[in-house]
Nucleic acid binder design. Structure first.
Length: 467
RNA sequence: GACCCCAUCGUCUAGUCAGGUCCAGGACACGACCCUUUCAAGGUCGAGACACGGGUUCGAAUCCCGUUGGGGUCACCA
């Protein structure tokens, strides 16, 4: 049997990181088994579903490189089919019309709550004769749920979960306006799409029981379930807006690399021994349902950041330059020249280990593209004392004579200079750093000299001495 | 409230299904040190957990029961 999984978000907002992880798990499981991963938009709530949300979800999936097979299924386009399924149940006497008004149902719920009994529909129209039906009320269609016994779910994560059928009432299949409910749509679509494995959030565990009843009433094979614990915020509650960034796009904007978010997300709630950092290929090879955790996991930004550091260090220099060039141009108010791009690329190996996030990489890159005379910040200015300036003036004369300007010649010259003067390298490196970068923090000083080149370096030194 | 799920360092987790090799391993974060021209990166070391109480057993983080704690779900929303 070919494995078919699906990701079925309702397009009512951004792609939530929890949903992204669900999508990732489904994708990994399908790819691992050489099966299919399908995308279905549960957009039957026309009030809340928006096209913006649809594109946000698609953009998010694309950014994370989660590709789906076949076309996108829009649940809203399948309403006729859903209604047809309900009609079949009606014909087979497995469902019935319910003429309760919303007010009547509200009363029923309130009463049940007061009594402390489960809040369920009492089935009053299940056996009532249709001739008693009020003419002014258009009915809903409800399923005849088993009155006794148990519904058992074999879940790959939670194990065997048993529900007493008395806890499961006759749910609505078709609303009074004839539109299908979520419960019906999901079952019909999962069946029609040939879904074999439903991997989704823990919050659907209760629904799995109701859906099982529907599957059975329809005589369809119940898919296998894997209910994954939800992602919690730092306080231990379901991750929501009040915890800060919950949308994938927010992490994209904050400068996380997609492969970092992916790696972090798979590892959150799933494990493969002590492996922490691994490639997508490895994840596909290793992923299984047996090693999904059973308890909820908290979203830990520190950890994500650490993973991001790992991937930034391993990212191609060209790719990083490409990622930062637009924002860099905006920051310095002009387009980048070829020279800038060359210097940036040359500097990347030095810049990468110093940047946890893309915005930080941009900050750390700025000194390279600034035009002379560069701005010297307060801390750096303090290092440029009179003594320091005269040191730099001397040093400039030495560097001036260098024919070859590369890291080793520059280093030899400077080390030779400090040895001769019997001073510490730091006493010249720090003022030099201040003059060349305008800051007290930068890559290694020899690297900086090499990145900037002879002309620019000596120019900046002379600016610093004059200032 | 009813129903369902969960419970190992602050956090993510290995180990739990097939009890002994676990006075519990790794990673993040934290602290110290090393390296060192600044800041990172890197390296070494350190502190840090089986929620509690009962069983079962020669032996329990691992099995059973209970308690406590946390979470989720209870719509003509998905």
């Amino acid at each position: 049997m070919t494995v078919v999984t699906r990701f079925a978000p309702s397009p009512t907002g951004f792609l939530h990181v929890g949903s992204a992880r669900t999508a990732l798990f489904n994708w990994l499981y399908a790819r691992h088994h050489g099966g299919k991963f399908l995308l279905r938009l549960e957009d039957t709530d026309r009030k809340r579903s928006t096209e913006e949300a649809v594109s946000a979800i698609i953009d998010g999936l694309r950014w994370l490189n989660l590709d789906w097979d076949d076309g996108i299924v829009r649940q809203s386009e399948r309403m006729e089919r859903h209604a047809e399924v309900a009609q079949r149940l009606l014909k087979e006497s497995k469902a019935y019309h319910c003429y309760c008004t919303p007010e009547e149902l509200a009363e029923m719920r309130d009463a049940a709550r007061e009594r402390g009994s489960p809040v369920l529909y009492d089935g009053r129209w299940r056996y009532r004769d249709p001739s008693e039906a009020p003419t002014h009320v258009s009915p809903t269609v409800r399923i005849k749920s088993p009155l006794s016994g148990e519904t058992v779910i074999k879940d790959h994560v939670q194990g065997t979960v048993t529900f007493a059928n008395q806890q499961l009432d006759d749910m609505v299949l078709l609303r009074s306006d004839g539109t299908p409910t979520y419960m019906l749509s999901v079952v019909a679509d999962d069946h029609d799409m040939g879904v074999t494995h439903v991997i989704r959030g823990d919050d659907h565990l209760n629904n799995a029981a109701r859906q099982t009843i529907l599957f059975q009433a329809l005589g369809w094979t119940v898919p296998e379930f894997a209910h994954v614990p939800l992602i919690h915020g730092a306080d231990g509650a379901k991750l929501s807006k009040r915890h800060g960034a919950v949308g994938v796009e927010a992490y994209r904007e904050d400068g996380y690399l997609p492969e970092a978010l992916r790696n972090y997300l798979v590892r959150l709630g799933w494990s493969h021994g002590d492996d922490e950092l691994f490639t997508t290929e490895q994840a596909v090879e290793w992923f299984d349902l047996n090693h999904l955790g059973r308890g909820a996991a908290r979203f830990d930004v520190d950890r994500l950041q650490n993973v991001n550091v790992h991937y930034i260090q391993r990212a191609q220099d060209d790719r990083l330059v490409e990622m930062i060039r637009d924002r860099l141009a905006k920051r310095c108010g002009r387009d980048l020249r070829d020279r800038d791009l060359e210097r940036l690329k040359a500097a990347m190996p030095e810049l990468k280990p110093r940047s946890k996030l893309i915005p930080e990489l941009i900050e750390n890159s700025l000194f390279i593209i600034h035009d002379r005379p560069i701005e010297i910040d307060e801390k750096a200015a303090k290092l440029l004392t009179l003594d320091a300036k005269s040191l730099l003036r001397d040093l400039a004369e030495v560097l001036e004579t260098l024919e070859d300007w590369n890291q080793s010649t520059v280093e030899t010259a400077i080390r030779g200079y400090v040895a001769e003067k019997e001073i510490k390298l730091g006493s010249v490196a720090q003022p030099l750093r201040a003059g060349l970068t305008g800051r007290t923090i930068s890559p290694g000083i020899f690297e900086v000299l090499t990145i900037l080149g002879k002309e620019e370096s000596l120019g900046r030194m002379s600016d610093a001495v004059k200032a």
